[in-house]
Amino acid sequence: MVTNAGTLGRSGVHDFVLIRASALVLTAYAIFMVCFFVCTPQVTYAEWVGLFSQTWVKVFTLITLISLLVHAWIGLWQVLTDYVKPVAVRISLQFILNIAALAYLVTGIVVLWGV
Protein backbone atom coordinates (compact mmCIF):
# COMPACT_ATOMS: atom_id res chain seq x y z
CA MET A 1 0.00 0.00 0.00
CA VAL A 2 1.29 3.41 -0.88
CA THR A 3 1.87 5.47 2.28
CA ASN A 4 2.33 9.20 1.92
CA ALA A 5 3.47 11.71 4.48
CA GLY A 6 2.18 14.81 2.69
CA THR A 7 -1.54 14.28 2.92
CA LEU A 8 -3.77 14.18 5.98
CA GLY A 9 -5.56 10.85 5.77
CA ARG A 10 -4.03 7.54 6.80
CA SER A 11 -4.78 6.19 3.32
CA GLY A 12 -6.32 7.21 0.02
CA VAL A 13 -9.69 5.93 1.18
CA HIS A 14 -9.36 7.91 4.41
CA ASP A 15 -8.62 11.07 2.33
CA PHE A 16 -11.67 10.26 0.18
CA VAL A 17 -13.93 10.07 3.24
CA LEU A 18 -12.40 13.07 5.06
CA ILE A 19 -12.70 15.41 2.09
CA ARG A 20 -16.36 14.55 1.57
CA ALA A 21 -17.31 14.68 5.22
CA SER A 22 -15.65 18.07 5.62
CA ALA A 23 -17.36 19.24 2.42
CA LEU A 24 -20.78 18.53 3.93
CA VAL A 25 -19.96 20.63 7.01
CA LEU A 26 -18.65 23.46 4.81
CA THR A 27 -21.78 23.33 2.65
CA ALA A 28 -24.02 23.52 5.72
CA TYR A 29 -22.12 26.53 7.02
CA ALA A 30 -22.22 28.26 3.63
CA ILE A 31 -25.99 27.84 3.49
CA PHE A 32 -26.28 29.03 7.12
CA MET A 33 -24.32 32.20 6.35
CA VAL A 34 -26.23 32.96 3.14
CA CYS A 35 -29.50 32.61 5.04
CA PHE A 36 -28.24 34.96 7.76
CA PHE A 37 -27.24 37.68 5.29
CA VAL A 38 -30.40 37.33 3.23
CA CYS A 39 -32.60 37.48 6.33
CA THR A 40 -30.86 40.52 7.83
CA PRO A 41 -30.37 42.96 4.93
CA GLN A 42 -28.87 45.71 7.12
CA VAL A 43 -26.47 44.04 9.58
CA THR A 44 -25.58 46.23 12.57
CA TYR A 45 -22.65 45.80 14.89
CA ALA A 46 -24.98 44.61 17.64
CA GLU A 47 -26.52 41.93 15.41
CA TRP A 48 -23.10 40.86 14.12
CA VAL A 49 -21.63 40.46 17.60
CA GLY A 50 -24.91 38.99 18.77
CA LEU A 51 -24.63 36.27 16.16
CA PHE A 52 -21.09 35.27 17.05
CA SER A 53 -21.58 35.54 20.80
CA GLN A 54 -23.97 32.61 20.76
CA THR A 55 -22.19 29.42 21.83
CA TRP A 56 -23.68 27.20 19.13
CA VAL A 57 -22.55 29.64 16.42
CA LYS A 58 -19.05 29.64 17.88
CA VAL A 59 -19.00 25.83 17.92
CA PHE A 60 -20.41 25.63 14.39
CA THR A 61 -17.88 28.18 13.13
CA LEU A 62 -14.92 26.41 14.73
CA ILE A 63 -16.04 23.00 13.46
CA THR A 64 -16.31 24.60 10.04
CA LEU A 65 -12.79 26.04 10.28
CA ILE A 66 -11.45 22.62 11.28
CA SER A 67 -13.33 21.10 8.36
CA LEU A 68 -11.83 23.78 6.13
CA LEU A 69 -8.34 22.84 7.31
CA VAL A 70 -8.99 19.19 6.50
CA HIS A 71 -10.68 19.95 3.16
CA ALA A 72 -8.00 22.39 2.05
CA TRP A 73 -5.12 20.23 3.23
CA ILE A 74 -6.23 17.16 1.29
CA GLY A 75 -7.54 19.15 -1.67
CA LEU A 76 -4.31 21.10 -2.02
CA TRP A 77 -2.28 17.91 -1.66
CA GLN A 78 -4.25 16.38 -4.54
CA VAL A 79 -3.80 19.49 -6.71
CA LEU A 80 -0.12 19.90 -5.94
CA THR A 81 0.75 16.24 -6.49
CA ASP A 82 -1.01 16.43 -9.83
CA TYR A 83 0.53 19.64 -11.12
CA VAL A 84 3.73 20.41 -9.23
CA LYS A 85 6.16 17.60 -10.00
CA PRO A 86 9.45 19.11 -8.68
CA VAL A 87 9.55 17.89 -5.09
CA ALA A 88 11.27 20.89 -3.48
CA VAL A 89 8.74 23.34 -4.92
CA ARG A 90 5.81 21.07 -4.04
CA ILE A 91 6.68 20.43 -0.41
CA SER A 92 7.46 24.10 0.28
CA LEU A 93 4.12 25.08 -1.28
CA GLN A 94 2.36 22.43 0.80
CA PHE A 95 4.11 23.67 3.95
CA ILE A 96 3.21 27.34 3.37
CA LEU A 97 -0.40 26.69 2.36
CA ASN A 98 -1.08 24.22 5.18
CA ILE A 99 0.36 26.65 7.69
CA ALA A 100 -1.92 29.34 6.26
CA ALA A 101 -4.97 27.06 6.63
CA LEU A 102 -3.91 26.36 10.20
CA ALA A 103 -3.58 30.11 10.74
CA TYR A 104 -7.19 30.59 9.58
CA LEU A 105 -8.29 28.09 12.23
CA VAL A 106 -6.25 29.67 15.01
CA THR A 107 -7.43 33.14 13.97
CA GLY A 108 -10.99 31.91 14.30
CA ILE A 109 -10.33 30.54 17.80
CA VAL A 110 -8.62 33.73 18.95
CA VAL A 111 -11.27 36.03 17.45
CA LEU A 112 -14.26 34.04 18.68
CA TRP A 113 -12.70 33.70 22.13
CA GLY A 114 -13.14 37.37 22.73
CA VAL A 115 -16.66 37.74 21.40
Partner: peptide, 24 residues
Protein backbone atom coordinates in the same frame (compact mmCIF):
# COMPACT_ATOMS: atom_id res chain seq x y z
CA UNK B 1 -10.85 30.03 -2.71
CA UNK B 2 -7.86 29.77 -0.43
CA UNK B 3 -7.02 33.46 -0.66
CA UNK B 4 -10.70 34.28 -0.39
CA UNK B 5 -10.71 32.63 3.04
CA UNK B 6 -7.73 34.77 4.00
CA UNK B 7 -9.64 37.92 3.11
CA UNK B 8 -12.81 36.73 4.89
CA UNK B 9 -10.95 35.79 8.06
CA UNK B 10 -9.29 39.20 8.06
CA UNK B 11 -12.66 40.91 7.67
CA UNK B 12 -14.15 38.76 10.43
CA UNK B 13 -11.34 39.56 12.85
CA UNK B 14 -11.59 43.31 12.19
CA UNK B 15 -15.39 43.44 12.19
CA UNK B 16 -15.73 41.54 15.48
CA UNK B 17 -12.78 43.29 17.10
CA UNK B 18 -14.44 46.60 17.80
CA UNK B 19 -17.34 48.80 16.75
CA UNK B 20 -14.96 51.08 14.87
CA UNK B 21 -13.54 48.01 13.15
CA UNK B 22 -17.05 46.96 12.17
CA UNK B 23 -17.79 50.42 10.73
CA UNK B 24 -14.49 50.31 8.86
Amino acid sequence: MFFAMGILMWLLAVSLGSESGFEC
